[in-house]
């Protein structure tokens, strides 16, 4: 899906846990997630901390969308 959205002309960031698959398949902007069953959350944390983790990943996603790239890039989550 990610490639078709990009092909249609919309910049897209792929948030996923298994970034190697995303790279093999050909996503361009990639942000690593926590785990497969809970990419944007961490059930082991209290709610407030879990939301902070989600915020950090989403911040990275916004940064990825705002960054010019020329090749596949995996962005760090601060």
């Amino acid at each position: 899906m990610v490639k078709e959205i990009e092909r249609a002309g919309i910049p897209v960031v792929h948030i996923c846990t298994v970034t190697p698959i995303s790279q093999t398949v050909g996503a361009n902007r990639i942000v690593p997630a926590i785990a497969i069953p809970h990419p944007l959350g961490d059930p082991s944390l209290p709610l407030e901390e879990e939301k902070a983790v989600r915020r950090r990943i989403m911040n990275a996603a916004l940064k990825a969308l705002s960054t010019e790239i020329s090749e596949q890039t995996v962005f760090d989550v601060d």
Binding site: M1, V2, E4, I5, R7, A8, G9, I10, P11, V12, V13, H14, I15, C16, T17, S22, A33, I36, P37, P39, L40, M58, A61, L65
Partner: peptide
């Protein structure tokens, strides 16, 4: 759905995978 997104002026997509 990308057609709809273009028509509706969506400027970016965040795609999440499990």
């Amino acid at each position: 759905f990308s057609k709809e997104l273009i028509e509706e002026n969506v400027q970016a997509v965040i795609l999440t995978s499990t």
